[in-house]
Design a protein around this nucleic acid. Structure first.
Lengths: 216, 216
DNA sequence: TGACGTGTTATAACGCGTTATAAATTGAAT
DNA sequence: ATTCAATTTATAACGCGTTATAACACGTCA
């Protein structure tokens, strides 16, 4: 077994143990000492491999997100902007499986004192959304005065911010997506040409009663 | 000096010292031992008076917010909805004085493991925004199908979420307000009657270039 | 085979928020 | 003036993330 093999074996033991602990006891149950016990490695090993607890959690999140990002927007719709909205439904469905598991990881990364971790999530989301905005621009779905870069930043920011509230436990994933959908469609009503704008309206929930943003 | 007098004197010493430390060394420099030193009280005293470090920071924030909330929306405008938007400008101006100080306090409260603290901030903001929405409804500025309670929750949520990104250091206060203004006006375009909706358009920045959401 | 170097281990320690314990201080009541 | 109760104090301790130190194990290369 080579050096790299041993390293990735240790990595595997640690990541499996971390997942096991978070699932059974929640993210707050994941302490480095508990993790070292469960994974049967030294307390120092996770630090060697991931740098910090946050680094480990980012690794867990990345593995999960790769699966989500891959099949995002394969909707094959008439309008790019509609595909964009459906991206939110896919995201909801994805994170709703093991919602508490994902929430815990998000939260721990969010509150860490490693600002580059938050920066990473930010640019990841903005990049994806901006790609859609660029495609929509090319397809002529956006008005002339609309800069797709700026649009992507705004839409990405609102999704990311709302997911922050989700991570903090103030929203369910369903509420998070419902709110983001409202915001995105509202903004796109101003940014889109009239035809795709009209198509978007059908995906807009009402302002009447239920579906609020109150606690779960 | 009565019991209460002694308590509030200790409170004063602690809050002054906390403010001094945060201003000079940032919120990350505020540790309970450092605070006890600076305030010349026992390590236990802040816990007696505020319950926790988060409790102390909430006290600091409340004192500050009382001043902001008081003179919010004294715009005397033609439309309630315009007053509502101007509320954002007032908020920006307010927090931009000592932006780092306020950011630090927000952040520490946000990341604390006292969920009731976040809940407090949430309901505070939603309550204020909902009051505006109710006034706008009474004034006939909102369409028939719009529930002002739901509208208030959605607008409040988007402000609060974006301020979360601000607290995390990913946005300046100016970017935070610019984004929130875009979101609010976009949503209100769908919720408002045509006359106030037209009035709101003038307060809307463009989608073209600058004013993005990138890091400071 | 032997020496080198990389990665892991065990142990102790640091500062952090928080709590427990008991002693000291001080207003309030008799 | 003396007793009682409320508050502050001093000290030690806990678990947390993280780091330092030194010993140990084991691929790699001569």
């Amino acid at each position: 077994m080579s050096f790299e093999d041993r390293k990735s074996e240790t990595r595997d033991k640690i990541e499996r143990a971390a997942e096991r602990i978070i699932r059974s006891e929640g993210a707050s149950g994941l302490t480095m000492r508990r993790l070292a016990d469960e994974a049967q490695v030294a307390l120092r090993s996770p630090y060697n491999l991931y740098g910090s607890k946050t680094g480990l959690l980012i690794a867990l999140l990345d593995r999960v997100n790769a699966a989500l990002f891959q099949d995002l927007g394969s909707g094959d719709q008439e309008w790019v902007l509609i595909e964009m909205i459906q991206t939110l439904d896919q995201t909801q469905k994805f994170y709703e499986v093991d919602e508490e598991y994902h929430r815990g990881i998000f939260w721990e990364i969010m509150i860490s004192d490693h600002p580059e971790a938050r920066e990473d999530g930010h640019s990841n989301i903005v990049r994806i959304v901006t790609e859609f905005a660029l495609r929509a621009k090319e397809a002529g779905e956006l008005r002339d005065h609309v800069d797709p870069i700026v649009l992507g930043e705004q839409l990405g920011l609102s999704l990311l911010s709302t997911m922050g509230s989700w991570a903090g436990g103030n929203l369910t994933m369903a509420q998070t997506i419902a709110h983001t959908k409202l915001v995105w469609i509202s903004i796109l009503q101003l940014a889109a040409e009239s035809e795709p704008a009209a198509a978007l309206t059908k995906h807009l929930g009402s302002f009447a009663s239920q579906e609020g943003s109150a606690k779960p």
